[in-house]
């Protein structure tokens, strides 16, 4: 479904992705882990069109994404839940959701989302900035889902959340996964990621160094430790 081939990208003059290959099949849930500065966020930025690759190709359902603007990529069915949530703090919860939905079915999709996320339904008239961190993260995910994407990309959904709030976010994501959504999850919380994803890839210094299925990675912590701590 999603295929990155030999992707290179530069940020602030320096190359941050050095020829990255990644394939995600429809319905698959893939985690991306790696040390700070490995290029995980750059990978997501390339995927959703915020960082044009300097070489290589990105295709989604056989369609070339390179050169497309972020809004065009969203229309093709890739939704991003950005790091730090980035909800529209001064708009109401309902307005935030409405902005994520497109087309004539937007109202219906918004209503449906509020049924599905009861807390958001209860607080639909409140300013989004007044929600707690966990609720804001729910809103960010809901806002991505109302556009009916086929691939959901998440950047550090647990960042800045209390343990209990992290639990409820992952419960929610579990529900999304059961519905068959394809998910690409970037997370610093390694244990969570490996546990949640069928397959995880380990990035370091702009390329993928290792990958494995859930069981393999859980059985072989040495593999992870080799890549996650100090840079090689």
């Amino acid at each position: 479904m999603l295929e990155l081939r030999e992707v290179r990208a530069r940020r602030g003059g320096a190359e941050v992705l050095h020829g990255l290959d990644l394939t995600v099949e429809a319905g698959e849930v893939v985690g991306v882990i790696g040390p700070n500065g490995a290029g995980k966020s750059s990978l997501l930025r390339v995927l959703c069109g915020l960082l044009p690759p300097s070489a290589g190709s990105v295709s989604f359902d056989g369609r070339d994404l390179t050169g497309l603007a972020p809004e065009q990529i969203t229309r093709l069915g890739i939704a991003m839940v950005p790091e730090g949530r980035q909800i529209f703090a001064s708009l109401s919860v309902a307005e935030n959701l409405r902005l994520g939905a497109r087309g004539p079915l937007g109202e219906a999709a918004t209503a449906e989302a509020m049924e599905r996320f009861p807390i958001l339904g209860e607080r639909c008239g409140q300013r989004a900035g007044q929600l707690s961190g966990g609720e804001q993260q729910q809103l960010a995910i809901a806002r991505a889902l109302v556009g009916s994407p086929r691939l959901l990309a998440l950047d550090e959904p647990s960042m800045g959340l209390a343990p209990k709030a992290i639990d409820s976010i992952y419960e929610l994501l579990d529900g999304v996964r059961r519905e068959g959504m394809t998910i690409l999850l970037v997370e610093q919380n390694v244990a969570r990621t490996i546990d949640f994803c069928e397959r995880s890839v380990v990035m370091s210094r702009g390329v993928i160094r290792a990958e494995g299925e859930r069981d393999e990675l859980q059985r072989d912590p040495a593999l992870l430790r080799a890549y996650l701590g100090r840079q090689l």
Binding site: P35, E156, M159, Q188, R225, G229
Partner: peptide
């Protein structure tokens, strides 16, 4: 929250 955005080892 100085450790937000760092993995466990970091």
């Amino acid at each position: 929250e100085p450790a937000a955005g760092l993995n466990d080892q970091e």
